[in-house]
Design a protein around this nucleic acid. Structure first.
Lengths: 208, 208, 208, 208
DNA sequence: CCCTAAGCGAGACGGTACGTCAGGTCTTCGG
DNA sequence: CCGAAGACCTGACGTACCGTCTCGCTTAGGG
């Protein structure tokens, strides 16, 4: 997660793992208190009771640090089996919205995405640390729905991938837009309306 | 659009309207060259051949300036009548994606949205200058589709509004997510797949 | 004193003489409140209820304005006949010291002198508006002392001038240094000690 | 002399002593080229090849910096034994005048004195860094004259101090006034006339 | 059991940009 | 033409962070 993918240099004092944890924790705290644009490396260092050098030894800058600090939060998302595809979708929509309401994700997510439009390595980091990891939810949901007979098995693998990507963009995009751009609440009612729209659309594409 | 909503103070030298235009143009140019995070007020002032103070007299800061500079680009979006709802949706999806591919919008849009999560006045500015202005496309598209008989007229006004908002979040969200987060192209194929999904979903809700 | 030495241009609106007085008064007030370095043209204009342009039409800048504003205060110095040279000297020393204790002169005098070291026209202005005007006190004091028989009449005119200049520098210099550099009070005791020293010195040069 | 009178904090990177020297040197050079009022912290930093922050870390502002930069020049003043009190006084008068003719002292001295009239801490700094240090010359001169039998030993210590202060104010004041206010040269002739006046005055006060 | 290489804290360093302020000038309107 | 109002350009201000550096000290592993 942090940068040290090096072959574990054998000599010298090893890096403090406590520092790592303290820094990420401090980063989230700073995001909550100050927001993305006011967050500074110095402030994070102070909160984590760590020297600035220690931060820079591990992360190249604010962008990378925040991605790592926030990524772990997205792993909290789960897909408990609620018995039907509609319930599963609605559940994940509400979970995702709740995550986006948290101040640390709220302020950080769009900011790092914005930065990533001009920084390829950052975009790759975001994809691997956040985006791609959450596609698992779409894939898992589909599998369950297929097992239940709610969805057909897709014959063509590439079509299957394309569909999963589309669904992911629609769900994630709609929830993010509703939450951060429209700044309206994602409540059970909205989640229900959205889920209905999505599943009818999906069902339609599977008709003969 | 800029700050002077005052009742046009009668005395003193009036503000230069040329400066206004030059500043917004310079802001877009600076966004293209430097991106959001590297853009500075000083650079914009230099490009616009204007003093920094002249910027600050009109805009409170980088955020407000960029919103105004970018907002006008969104007004380019149109909804030419292509004869069917599907064609209209697909058309606007492609237009919107093309707009998001432009470097000035690409780097600016998410950034100001991110900032707006901690700044209510900024969020209001974004809504009035960008978001709400584009809902017109959804409303216009629905009217046309209703005139064509592709969609029913909605009896309940509040349901109608809710539906329009939902559709707007789904379209805008999906396109933004595909473009900026997934960083995959919005080509005719994707647009077609997305439009199909959306319209089937809409049709489904009108069946019974 | 102010700049308009033009041959009374016959046409157009005449300059407000009230404005002149108000500006000089405002300048002194600003000196008292803010001191030389914090005094600004804008503040003076505001206090005088006058536009900045009006100031610049009359004075080239802060330096010239302050010299004129302060010069008039030095004309308050007088040399009442106290019956003896010693009493006259002591009197003028105390008067001068009292003038230098006033905040407007205190802060302004050294400042404009400092500026004048790099600005010949300013130095000329200071000399004509302040310094040379006060030499009259030395000359008047000498005349009286000569009339009283306390001092001999000087035969050589250039020697007389040289002596007057020397005495002026010694008196003015000592009082200024005591007041502004040493920052010690010029009370009757000090004035007495200084006068004694000076007059004994003068007497000595006239002995043989 | 600079700010660090702290007990040498043991941790962190130590301050660069080269920077200290370069800054003071650059300050003097800037005074020569630009004069007090045009001197800027930025220019000094540039000349010293140092960041502006490095200046502000050591000095609170222009005033303090210039006092320190100029103070060292005053330490050049010496009192070589020329065999008689008159010769000693005349020598120091000419040295002091030569110092005041140098552009860096010329422009700086009166300026900082002017500022000090509104800033007690600055006045203390000037006194300790410049004024009081030069009183040594008066004291040394008196001691020598007493050793030579030219002056009596003063019985009362407080009277001795008062006299030394008076002489200091007279010498320094007269030379400064002649040089900077009257803007006339302090040549051997003037120095001789002044010395005669002063010593006769002193002699007179010691008669029975 | 010391040696050595790296980690660590502290804080100074050269920079860049900030947002503000003052200096002077220019442009409008009204007197 | 004068005067007020206020916008304009210029350039300096003092501050905040940046990311790097240089210290002296700590901490483990390998010889």
């Amino acid at each position: 997660m942090s940068s040290s993918d090096s072959p574990t240099s054998r000599t010298g004092r090893p890096r403090s793992t406590e520092a790592d944890a303290a820094i990420l924790e401090a980063t989230r705290a700073s995001l909550v208190d100050l927001g993305w644009s006011k967050l500074t490396m110095g402030d994070v260092a102070t909160r984590a009771k760590v020297a600035k050098t220690t931060l820079y030894r591990r992360w190249a800058g604010k962008n990378e640090l925040v991605v790592d600090a926030v990524a772990v939060l997205f792993d909290e998302l789960e897909l408990p089996d609620r018995g039907s595809l509609a319930a599963d979708v609605q559940g994940v929509v509400l979970q995702f919205a709740a995550l986006l309401e948290r101040p640390e994700t709220r302020t950080a997510l769009m900011a790092v995405v914005a930065e990533s439009t001009r920084d390829d390595s950052l975009r790759r980091r975001i994809r691997s640390a956040i985006v791609d990891r959450q596609k698992r939810l779409v894939l898992l949901g589909r599998e369950r729905a297929q097992a239940r007979g709610e969805l057909r098995y897709e014959a063509d693998a590439s079509t299957a991938t394309r569909n999963a990507d589309l669904i992911f963009d629609v769900i994630a995009g709609a929830v993010v837009h509703r939450t951060l751009v429209s700044a309206e609440p994602v409540d059970a009612e909205w989640a229900s309306g959205f889920t209905t729209l999505l599943l009818l659309g999906l069902a339609g594409t599977q008709e003969p």
